[in-house]
């Protein structure tokens, strides 16, 4: 027998973990984090499957963590307008990693999706277990959020302020 039952009894390995590790290694949130730590972290993530057109979360929902898209695509919608389209390897909802603030946009799947939840509680556990490595991720997270804030400021200056002045 090539795969006896007991061979994998104590070492159950899911296919998505391997794919997720590869995607995480290329994601800016995990920049500078050793491969072994990423693997440990990914093994604690939670994979979910969504149908096309299914709501992942809505603006104002309580957020428990970030999501990494393993396959399929997701539209980010604010006030009915699609502001971004996300694909394999994209991470979204990272604000919930930092705080339990409500979601700032709607996320709806555009096609059948496979995604993993990286929960704030798992990050907290990692901070307790490996504070040094976790601090690298926290620096990356603050960098991502700071860049997003700058982009929002620029957009505000370019789009909202001229409109207010013309009114």
């Amino acid at each position: 027998m090539s795969h006896p039952l007991w061979a994998n009894f104590f070492r159950h390995q899911h296919d998505w973990i391997h794919r997720c590790c590869r995607l995480c290694e290329n994601n800016p949130l995990f920049r500078g984090i050793p491969r072994r730590a990423i693997r440990w972290l990914v093994s604690r993530m939670h994979v979910r499957h969504f149908d096309a057109g299914e709501t992942v979360f809505r603006m104002g929902d309580p957020g428990a963590g970030a999501l990494l898209l393993l396959s399929g695509s997701v539209n980010i919608i604010i006030n009915g307008a699609c502001v971004a389209s996300l694909h394999e390897g994209d991470l979204f909802g990272e604000v919930a990693l930092a705080n339990d603030l409500p979601r700032t946009a709607d996320a709806v799947t555009a096609s059948p999706c496979e995604m993993v939840f990286f929960l704030r509680s798992d990050l907290q556990e990692w901070i307790d277990t490996s504070p040094r490595q976790a601090s690298v991720l926290l620096v990356n997270l603050s960098d991502i959020l700071a860049r997003r804030l700058m982009q929002a400021n620029v957009r505000y200056e370019q789009e909202v302020i001229p409109q207010e002045n013309s009114d």
């Binding site: 979910r48 992942v56 309580p62 957020g63 428990a64 939840f117 929960l119 704030r120």
Partner: peptide, 25 residues
């Protein structure tokens, strides 16, 4: 324990998955 807990939480529907974790935490 962590694996058992995660597998139990996987039984939740997508819409209530995050809420389930927030309540659990």
């Amino acid at each position: 324990y962590h694996q058992l807990r995660n597998e139990a939480m996987q039984l939740l529907p997508n819409r209530y998955f995050e809420l389930g974790w927030l309540v659990y935490n």
